[in-house]
């Protein structure tokens, strides 16, 4: 939260926030062993701890009549099970619930860090974090596909879906290979990253407009722009909460869909 980040420009010219708002120095500067501990990694750790604590409090000592956190936990569990696991994975859905539940809430808490005061940075706006999550799902997808359909069978099912005219496979096979094996992990990671990145930049932009025109350079003409920036900051924050929830949901939905495509060949 240095002055460099709060000041919206040097001199008299308004400067929109750029990529530098995503650059964070190590929290304990100068200590070689802790160079990895920056704000984004701290948020990842906090999100992981929050998921563990939430699941522990909710399901660690379940009662027949739920009280307190267990109520919330059961609603959350039902949401993931009935909206993601069962429609996507069918009867295998319940077996995959631990993975899907923790993925959903891990991503959700990392996204929510973007609107929680003081933190105010979605950890998933750093491409490294969605990449790790998407690679885990991708590795699982390949492993399960080869395990359940065989090495040749899996790639045959991916590239040559049965029941089409022979000539069509010339076009279809490369497209299917590209979209399933190469683009899938890429879009899976980038979808989450791009939404969080753009959302954070938008909020930062309107907040900077409000700060610049209302606090730093208050003029009769500029005040109107500042008020618009202030109102838009609030509106965009509400919109971000919606987008953050939706993206966490879609990330889990796609993970379930990819796992299902490996468990059962498309017919």
């Amino acid at each position: 939260m240095s002055a460099r980040l709060l000041a919206s420009g040097s001199g008299d010219k308004f400067e929109a926030p750029g990529l530098h708002i995503f650059d964070w120095k190590p929290i304990f500067e100068g200590q070689a062993g802790l160079a990895w501990l920056t704000k984004p990694t701290l948020i990842v750790i906090l999100a992981a701890l929050a998921v563990i604590l939430f699941a522990w409090r909710a399901f660690g000592n379940p009662k027949l009549v739920p009280r307190g956190v267990q109520n919330v936990g059961e609603v959350a569990y039902l949401l993931v099970r009935d909206q993601v696991a069962r429609p996507m994975l069918g009867k295998d859905g319940d077996r995959w619930m631990p993975f899907l539940f923790s993925t959903f809430f891990f991503v959700l808490f990392m996204n929510y860090a973007g609107v929680i005061p003081v933190l105010q940075l979605p950890a998933t706006s750093h491409i490294a974090i969605p990449i790790v999550l998407a690679l885990a799902v991708y590795g699982m997808m390949l492993f399960l596909g080869i395990k359940h359909q065989g090495l040749v069978g899996y790639f045959k099912n991916v590239m040559f879906p049965p029941g089409l005219p022979k000539a069509l496979y010339v076009i279809l096979a490369p497209i299917e290979f590209l979209s399933t094996i190469i683009l899938r992990p890429f879009t899976h990671a980038v979808r989450l990253f791009a939404n969080m990145f753009a959302g954070h930049l938008l909020i930062a932009f309107f907040a900077t407009v409000a700060w610049w025109f209302l606090a730093e350079k208050l003029t009769p003409l500029g005040a109107g722009v500042g008020v618009v920036g202030f109102v838009m900051t609030i509106v965009m924050t509400a919109f971000e909460i919606f987008v953050q929830s939706l993206q966490a949901f879609i990330f889990t939905l796609l993970a379930a869909s990819y796992i299902n495509s490996s468990l059962h060949a498309d017919h």
Partner: peptide, 17 residues
């Protein structure tokens, strides 16, 4: 609907990156 939305969005995301 959400699945189709997520797949369609992929092209815009590539343009974004």
């Amino acid at each position: 609907m959400l699945l189709g939305f997520a797949l369609t969005e992929a092209l815009a995301l590539i343009g974004f990156v």
